[in-house]
Design a protein around this nucleic acid. Structure first.
Lengths: 280, 280
DNA sequence: AAATTGAGTTCTGAATAATGGAACTATCGG
DNA sequence: CCGATAGTTCCATTATTCAGAACTCAATTT
């Protein structure tokens, strides 16, 4: 079930009588851009390059229209046409993202603390941020191995089965928490994957202890300990985590690193207050 | 295809009036999307987050229009509004890029060969591809250090002063080569940075020997040896390189690695023939 | 070889969304 | 309180996008 776009209907704004404030609601009012982004999503989320017709069958646009749209996307470098005519994501995206990543202020603030935490634990350290009902990994610091970069960065994962995700949730006020929990469909990845109920009770624990754990809830053999990181105004809600294989991250080891992880989170938060707080 | 302009200007606008606007062929025929992408470029290329007014002053759009455009970009997650109202690149870009990177077929084919080359040399290995008059790095494999990911991947660099760039150029037919050379303005990064003339003569050498070198032409203290990688139909034109500090990469060492680099390039190309050649 | 299908491209009046100018609201500094 | 600077909303005008059909081109089938 693709959680694709929701609604696109909003014809005729018969604005006779006055306006209600458009409070929340998730009406995409992004006009042309919105339609193009849907296409971009279709192509980037596909398993591989797509032919014109493949796209046509899922895009719900007339052929001529789709053709022009793909043309525009291609001309801008957001898509690429392979030799055989199929469409793949374009390199322009890499360029944009690398800039956006390099200058991200949260990431820059967190960077030294992530490195320190990696040194201390020897395991892989992540910084993630909540976006909607997903966690996007903003940075990742690994130990030795000739690394697979990008391996995780930029990836979106479900909130309810990652340490960073649960940590982030614990920082939210209840109403937002409820909104997210009710909007997510809980897939069962492993034996230990949480349900809405167990998630709620875990959140309570996290708020008390300051640490979130992932005990093979997302992937068998992978554990992690995390702590929430957020800015005061909640413009940033995320977390730091230390992740590793279960044979190294025994349950005792997780407890042992709970404090250092919390400390790192605190350092990052105080860095944010300094770096972002005062007027600029 | 045709004139694939699309490249975005080089960095560091040094003195040099260089009043000539880049090829006036600003025939962006991408309608609304084109305008939005210009904005996105403005924000991602800036040194930091920009206020509405900052953008207004360079975007050349009326306030109301700009306001709506930024609103759309923000709503789609391509831009983000910070707590103080300034605009920064959005996280959606990371998500899109990580997908586009992970599935890139050229990168996937090259990956094992890059790793092997890194193992052999112990230095940093790059895979880059030509796009317009720039080189975009598609992958990077480093040795040990707790890595700075994204550090280079996705970055666009000038063709004329990187090993990969020169290698890529050498694979092009003369007319395309001429087009690129004449479209680029040659900034002088170091003592050794090439000029259009020296570049041309180097290209001749590269075509003969099969290797391109960067002898501190982009950055003092950094050298590299590269070899061209391209698909038969030139839908992919790029290169592989081994890069490192001058004190380790002596000139003799560069020569020593010239052959392994060429070999890696050949392996990648034969992988492409298998992987991309037959119909799919 | 002619006919048929499938895939992709181009064209057009009609409909929709973007434009740009101005008026409006905050917020700040004195 | 006033005058600036910064950001937001409104709305008639205009330019872009839309949708559908007609067209090209190549690969299959008869």
């Amino acid at each position: 079930m693709g959680a694709t776009d929701g609604d696109i209907m909003d014809k005729n704004a018969m604005d006779k009588d006055a306006a209600d404030k458009n409070a929340s609601a998730d009406k995409r009012e992004t006009g042309t851009l919105g339609k193009l982004m849907v296409l971009l999503d279709i192509v980037t989320h596909a398993d591989g390059p797509m032919r014109f017709t493949d796209i046509l069958s899922v895009a719900g646009q007339p052929r001529g229209t789709l053709h022009r749209q793909l043309g525009h996307l291609t001309e801008e470098g957001l898509l690429e046409v392979l030799a055989d005519g199929r469409y793949a994501p374009g390199l322009r995206l890499l360029d944009l993202a690398s800039r956006s990543w390099a200058r991200n202020e949260f990431r820059l603030i967190a960077e030294p603390h992530l490195n320190a935490l990696q040194q201390l634990t020897g395991e892989t350290v992540h910084l993630g941020v909540l976006r909607g009902a997903s966690v996007i990994y903003l940075d990742k610091v690994e130990g030795s191995q000739p690394v697979r970069m990008y391996s995780q960065i930029g990836n979106a994962s479900p909130v309810y089965c990652t340490g960073v995700g649960k940590a982030a949730l614990s920082a939210l006020p209840d109403d937002q928490l409820d909104a997210i929990i009710s909007s997510v469909s809980f897939l069962r990845f492993t034996e230990n994957t949480l349900t809405p109920e167990t998630l709620r009770s875990e959140i309570t624990d996290i708020r008390r202890s300051g640490n979130a754990f992932d005990r093979e809830e997302h992937e068998v053999g992978i554990r992690c300990v995390a702590a929430p990181v957020c800015s005061e105004d909640l413009s940033f809600v995320g977390g730091v985590s230390v992740t590793g294989p279960a044979y190294r991250l025994t349950l005792e080891r997780l407890e042992e690193w709970a404090l250092p992880v919390r400390r790192a989170a605190e350092s990052i938060m105080s860095g944010m207050r300094i770096g972002l707080g005062p007027r600029r």
